[in-house]
Design a protein around this nucleic acid. Structure first.
Lengths: 361, 361
DNA sequence: TTGAAAGCGCTAACAA
DNA sequence: TTGTTAGCGCTTTCAA
């Protein structure tokens, strides 16, 4: 005797075979109709209609995984980033927005892989590149120079604001030095002389470039930068707060700077906090400008140097797709490092210097 | 004669078959060793070592797509959200952070699908559910009540802050009414009487609940809410700015409210902007409190009602995974709506009311 | 302990 | 115009 009929499995999604069966044609015909496969040139109108009807009836949805396996292409881009803590998130959000939107426009989706620290990268990055993404965007990676040795070869990659040039990885960034140069130049042109630069960490290339721009602007204007007016700290509100506060304490009674040029908007916010706490008016008593133009700067109306973060994200997608489509080994003819311009954004925290200098309280 | 040997294809990643060949065993053995497949119980130590060596040599990486196809499980969660514009992004970022971190902790990755508007949902959501994600999280969806009719049945879903109860979708939210109640109660207890509520849009359930909490707190304290002190606008800095400004203009000469209870931190920021512009001191002349506790509130030190956004994201992952693992049809026994508590966060913008009331300038 | 065979759902050659 | 066949890379019975 035949055994009991197997219990019906929970209804699964309809497959092409199901649709074909329903329509009385082969799965290939269904595929040709539904998924624009180039199986063969064309399909008779009648079959077409039948397949469409069957698909509709069965609520057919094509399976992207199977399709991806057959095509060796998932139409998915990976984004690797660290996104714990509050500060880097703002940056991430902007770039990610650019990535997501351009990716969507080009028929791709983005999946996010988080690292709690870039030290994990050699272990985790190769694990991400397991066929479910077609390419990977490294967001502000902090890599060792030997990274090329362990980065998977089969997955095209681009980086945004990488700390190093990595062989085989196209990097995108903005011209931070020029932005800092322009902003400092503007301050100098407005008559500011004692410009305090509250900078980022010593090991960050971006922080360094902002200092370089600050110095070059002074040189270009033939103004000697005031001694000891370049501080270094972390790229955060607290970093700005602490760096400025301790500097002010060490310089009591000396003339107050005309302006503070913070190396990031977060730092600027921390500085503003300490200055307001001392009863100073911004910008009447002292101007404060930032760098980045994150949301915070827009809502707090801080004059700043805009980094085109969304554009960087969007362009990263474009470059990555070019590389994916070219095939890794067809060679990529484009530049290894792409630099987008920054832009001065003048807002309420920037004004001409006081005529009579104040002393540090 | 045999034709020319085909040109070697660009080197592709090694497969299990390659590893098996290299090690002189079958692909299954390799699979058993490398991917913890439960092919059969065990593998001899010798084979094991050989396979491991071969894998190492060939830099074998398992293919997640093929594995996903075989398992019908991608270990990937989808997140659908609108993320254009600046304001919703802050919210998104917080919840997304929670999602990403919990997902990573549970061995899942997250892929983001963006909608430019929830009206697109009926077209695009089914397209997302194409086998590349195991489940979907809807972030603050604005759906029509008929959504159940077009939502794909084969993909488990949860929503965070949904505007409607949707059949088959578990929703997570925070107790906004209670948060508003508590905050308003606190203001009343401190002696504030004319509390202006600058609320969110009329069609937002969350905005409505905040109004309800505001009203219930008055009732509980047996204080009659001042007439015309509930405004409605959009959840944005501009929304707050505009709503307050026009209200103040319409009420020149009348007593200034003791406090502003904004329905979001962004609104609070807009209100603060207008109040400071009038030369008012916060909180000495007027207290301002917000709702949400986004980064903005933390840096601007706005007293607020904290919504546990990260926790909501994390919990959404947990619930979704439970549903995925249970299998859609095994039935999900848990609650249909999960409510997490809110929390009062007292910061610098909240103080006791002035003894002598000011007039609106 | 190991391997052979079948299949996940789709696609691409090729033949009919 | 359509169907047949053979994979994509991995997993899982089942038999050896």
């Amino acid at each position: 005797m035949a055994g009991e009929p197997k219990p019906r499995r929970a209804r699964r999604a309809a497959t092409l075979a199901d649709v074909g069966r329903e329509a009385g044609v082969s799965a290939m015909a269904a595929s040709a109709v539904l998924n624009a496969a180039k199986t063969s040139t064309r399909i008779s109108e009648e079959t077409r209609v039948r397949v469409l009807a069957a698909a509709e009836k069965l609520r057919y949805r094509r399976n992207a995984t199977a399709r991806g396996l057959a095509h060796r292409r998932m139409n998915t881009l990976g984004v690797a980033a660290t996104l714990i803590g509050d500060e880097p998130n703002q940056y991430f959000l902007e770039v990610f927005n650019g990535i997501i939107q351009r990716a969507a426009a080009r028929g791709q989706t983005a999946t996010v892989f988080t690292l709690s620290d870039w030290h994990e990268a050699p272990l985790r990055i190769p694990a991400f590149c397991d066929g479910r993404i077609d390419g990977l965007i490294l967001l502000a990676p902090l890599l060792q120079p030997d990274a090329a040795s362990w980065l998977p070869e089969h997955t095209p990659m681009v980086s945004v604001h990488a700390n190093h040039v990595i062989a085989g990885v196209v990097n995108l960034e903005s011209d931070e030095e020029a932005g800092a140069f322009e902003m400092t130049g503007r301050l100098l042109a407005m008559g500011h002389r004692r410009i305090l630069h509250v900078g980022g960490p010593l090991d960050a290339m971006g922080a360094e470039r902002r200092v370089q721009g600050y110095l070059r602007a002074h040189a270009a204007a033939r103004v000697k930068p005031p001694a000891g007016h370049v501080l270094r700290g972390t790229f955060s509100v607290e970093g700005g707060r602490d760096a400025l506060e301790s500097w002010l304490r060490r310089h009591r009674g000396e003339p107050l700077p005309d302006a503070v040029f913070a190396a990031s908007d977060a730092i600027a916010l921390g500085c503003i906090d300490r200055l307001l706490a001392r009863g100073l008016r911004i910008p009447a008593d002292i101007s404060v400008v930032g760098f980045d133009d994150i949301v915070l700067a827009r809502t707090a109306r801080i004059a700043t140097v805009r980094q085109p973060l969304r554009e960087l994200g969007a362009k990263a997608v474009d470059v990555l797709l070019t590389r994916i489509e070219a095939g890794l080994h067809a060679g990529y003819g484009g530049p290894r490092n792409i630099v987008l311009p920054t832009e001065l954004v003048v807002r309420g925290t920037l004004a001409a210097p006081r005529t009579a200098p104040l002393a540090i309280a």
